[in-house]
Amino acid sequence: MPVKDYIRERFFPHLWCPGCGHGIVMNALIRAIEALGLSKNEIVMVSGIGCSSRISGYLDFHTLHTIHGRALAFATGVKMGLPELNIIVPMGDGDALAIGGNHFIHAARRNIEMTAIIMNNRIYGMTGGQYSPLSGYGTLATTAPYMNIDHAFDVVQLSIAAGATFVARTTTYHVQQMTDCFKKAILHEGFSVVEVLSQCPTYFGRKNKMGSAADMMAFYRDHTTPIGSKKKKENPDLIERGIFVQKDLPEYCRAYDTVIERAKGKGQKG
């Protein structure tokens, strides 16, 4: 199916700034879904609030554009309500890990089958460039005019610690890898997390003198490396890309089927 058949043209033009990485993420996601041959009717996209969350409206799936930080909680209700659906939850770094941090770790802990995509641009874009929990120590933002003294989460480490059974990281520069990560994440029977480093030239880039969108993508090329590479050993500051965790543990909705079986047995005994 052509890429444009996944898009709701009624919604366009989109609201992303020139150079924004989120369109690349949307493109890679469509290609992953296309490659998997999933029907549009069996996909529900649930999002919260922010630039990244607007992806849901642009795509022709069942789409639920909710409130800030709570997308995974809504998605949990959708998934339990109809477990055969594929749930994809695009989130920004603030949406997923500041206001939504609690829902994130608990969805991961439950291992409920859905794909959380964290589009990490290290800034609140929609409100105009305030620091997020991913901005990092020493960065600048409209609410950190002198210097940000908040330390950043490591999304991968956080996801693993919370119990996610599929954890990957990639960037908007590495689109082939991104599509591959999405495919595997969507197929994964459990809670999957894909962190995508996605440039915000308008706010994070400008505030922190990162150059143009292309410069920021070149930064991703030069400052990331495949997991366990020789380069990483030589330069520990490089950010690793790839699939960090992929393991099988009981999925939440399937486990609940066991609860139903037990309850029915008990119910019959009176």
């Binding site: 409130i67 709570r70 909680a73 809504f74 998605a75 949990t76 339990m80 309850a263």
Partner: peptide, 29 residues
């Protein structure tokens, strides 16, 4: 609920509880 095939979930807080029922309602429950 599970005795009749229905579903119960204890969420991480009341915000999540309210969100989850809205999601489930959209699937027809």
């Amino acid at each position: 609920l599970p005795q009749s095939g229905g579903k119960f979930i204890q969420m991480e807080d009341e915000i999540a509880s309210m969100c989850a029922i809205i999601g489930a309602s959209l699937t027809g429950h």
